[in-house]
Design a binder for these strands. Structure first.
Length: 640
DNA sequence: AGCACGCCGACT
DNA sequence: GTCGGCGTGCTC
């Protein structure tokens, strides 16, 4: 007796479910019959529980669609339960998760774990109750505002004030722009002008009746944008979706974002996954910042997710930064993203003259610091003390610099004696007795300092802001920062220096101490796009990222070798082949963007195969070694 | 993961 | 004959 190939059923009585499991062999949709008692609640987007009979268990998942037909062989099992009536997974976020996973040979439910916050039963109950109390119809997919949030009317005049970039974003354009590099003073305190620019664009997007997602790398940046938004007319429309808030607040924000907007969804990297029924634009600040990189599989960072979401949704995309990264420059050169003209104003950068290369602080810098301290604070940027000191020692001990320079990254491993923030502070303090010294680093955070004479010594990324800007800026450990061995050192340094320089008052001197060459010149001329273009030209001749993509393969040797051969047929080549610390193979495959989908598909098939074969070794009771691991777009291709 | 099915060696 | 080892494959 043959079974019917298709099982037809009453309209919409079959549920397609994505199962919440990291197993790659379960990474597809499963069909379930919707039992009569669940037909009311079983709607797309809701959390469900489903039986996996072979696995003998009940699994969690999301109902992503209702259909009439199933291609699944045999009889369908029935949904076990609808966990909650709230459709927390919207169709566009589901499609985004699928695309993000596919791009990196990953599992969609891994992406969903990042995209959808954990359910909070109390929060949900209160939110649903508030929706009913507000007199909204009992529609679960469009409940009314909870009373706590006041939706102020949007001033029509905001449309007139909106910068021209807003109109382009609302047409679905992708734009890379450099932020104005100076401080801006708000009633609540100083922020970067970039934050005000982002806030203005976001306000323009909601004035156009659409929702804006604003993703920034860290809490300090989040606070600045929040302050800039609070100072504007759009304050009542802001919803924070950052992961730093409590689970309850995070879930409440998610529920709020599910309703039609317009609103501004402000958060860190996970904000690019926020549901937005009327998404108008995604705004990303500093896409190259390491905090935009996702540490969880499949490791897709804000920029790449935003690019996928832009493409799927047709929303606008704004990539804003003080300095253009090589990755964004590539997008501009291939014509995918439009580059905006550079800002009219630039910091006044002073380079160290040749005859003073050896001195720790050149005489001109001393003079400027002394002058600046008569009427305001001076910023002194130093490298991260522990990190840099340790690196210098490791390089001395383990690898002769001559060998290190042979690495394809080409970064010369300079060994510079460690100088820590404490000593710098001490020395400067002695040179200017009576002037207070403030040390700002990860352990001693200072978001802002008063605009009074003071020497502010800060590790990169921890620089405080000050009203009206610093009277002078010293970038001290430039050579040490450049000595880091990384494919991205030059642009990282340019970014760190640019961000510090942007804290200076207009016309205040910014001394880049002891650094010569292209990077120094790029800062001095404030032409990061040109520098990025030059870097990109080098990468093109080497066929290195971001001109190509990389995938790292590790695991048992035969399985890795088999995949290497398959990936060669898909258009990839092996850039690095070596053994890792445990003696296992470590292969970095390289491929063009065009080959990406094929490479990812082949890799995913291999991961599924390997997962099915993974077995405990006979006899021994210990767990089996993982047989294949694939990681796409590894940031540092060289082993550490 | 977790569980059923299936295809070869020693057994009441 | 059939009990049960664990290698292989599937989970709607």
């Amino acid at each position: 007796m043959t079974r019917p190939a298709m099982i037809a059923a009453a309209a919409g009585s079959i549920a397609r479910v994505v199962v919440d499991s990291p197993l790659p062999q379960l990474d597809h949709l499963f069909d379930y019959a919707v039992p009569p008692h669940l037909t009311g609640e079983a709607r797309p987007g809701v959390r469900v529980r489903v039986p996996l009979r072979m696995a003998g268990r009940i699994a969690d998942g999301y109902l992503v669609a209702l259909t009439d037909e199933s291609a699944a062989p045999g009889r369908l099992s029935a949904l076990d339960a609808v966990v909650s009536p709230v459709p927390v997974l919207t169709d566009d976020v589901w499609r985004l998760a699928r695309a993000v996973a596919d791009r990196a040979a990953g599992v969609a439910s891994d992406v969903l774990r990042i995209a959808v916050p954990k359910r909070q039963v109390r929060v949900e109950r209160a939110w649903l109750a508030a929706g009913e109390a507000a007199g909204a119809p009992a529609e679960v997919d469009a409940p009314a505002d909870p009373p706590a949030e006041v939706d102020a009317p949007i001033r029509p005049s905001a449309r007139v004030d909106a910068p021209p970039v807003v109109a382009r974003l609302l047409q679905g354009q992708r734009i890379a722009a450099e932020a104005t590099p100076r401080p801006a003073d708000l009633p609540s305190g100083p922020v970067g002008a970039w934050a005000v620019e982002l806030a203005r664009v976001a306000a323009g997007v909601i004035a156009g009746g659409r929702t804006a997602i604003v993703a920034v790398p860290d809490q300090r940046d989040l606070d600045q944008v929040a302050a800039a938004l609070a100072a504007g007319s759009a304050a009542a429309h802001v919803v924070r979706v950052d992961a730093a808030q409590s689970s309850a607040a995070r879930y409440r924000a998610h529920l709020t974002a599910l309703r039609p907007g317009p609103r501004i969804l402000l958060g860190n990297r996970s904000a690019v996954y926020a549901p937005a029924p009327d998404l108008g634009a995604i705004l990303v600040w500093e896409e190259a910042d390491p905090f935009h990189r996702e540490p969880l599989a499949p490791y897709a960072g804000t920029r790449d997710v935003a690019l996928l979401r832009q493409e799927q949704s047709g929303a606008g995309l704004l990539l804003l930064a003080h300095a253009r990264s090589t990755t964004v420059e590539r997008l501009v050169q291939v014509g995918w993203v439009a580059g905006s003209p550079s800002p009219a104003t630039a910091p006044r950068v002073v380079l160290t003259p040749d005859d003073e290369r050896a001195s720790r602080i050149p005489s001109a810098a001393w003079r400027d610091v002394a002058r600046a301290l008569t009427n305001g604070p001076v910023l002194v940027q130093v490298a991260r003390p522990g990190d840099a000191a340790l690196r210098a020692l490791q390089q001395q001990e383990h690898a002769p610099p001559s060998e290190r320079q042979d690495h394809p990254a080409g970064a010369a491993a300079l060994v510079v004696p460690p100088v820590d923030a404490g000593r710098t502070a001490h020395d400067l303090g002695r040179a200017f007795p009576g002037v207070p010294v403030v040390v700002a680093d990860g352990d001693h955070p200072h978001p802002t300092v008063p605009h009074e004479p003071a020497i502010v010594v800060a590790t990169r990324g921890a620089e405080p802001r000050t009203a009206a800007g610093y009277r002078a800026v010293l970038l001290l450990d430039g050579r040490r920062m450049l000595a880091r061995e990384s494919l991205w050192v030059a642009e990282d340094c340019l970014r760190w220096w640019s961000n510090a320089a942007a804290l200076a008052a207009p016309d205040a001197p910014v001394h880049l101490v002891g650094v010569q060459g292209d990077v120094a010149l790029a800062l001095a001329t404030w032409r990061s796009p040109d520098f990025a273009a030059a870097q990109l030209a080098d990468r093109r001749s080497l066929r290195f990222p971001p001109v190509t993509r990389l995938a790292l393969l590790t695991g048992s040797r035969p399985i890795v070798e088999e995949l290497v051969a398959e990936l060669r047929s898909a258009g990839a080549d092996a850039l690095i082949r070596e053994d890792d610390a445990d003696g296992g193979p470590r292969v970095v495959m390289r491929f063009d963007y065009g080959a990406g989908p094929a490479v990812a598909a082949v890799a995913k098939a291999a991961v599924v195969r390997a997962a099915a074969v993974r077995r405990p070794p006979p006899g021994s009771g210990r767990r089996p070694a993982r047989t294949l691991r694939v990681r796409f777009d590894v940031h540092e291709p060289l082993p550490s």
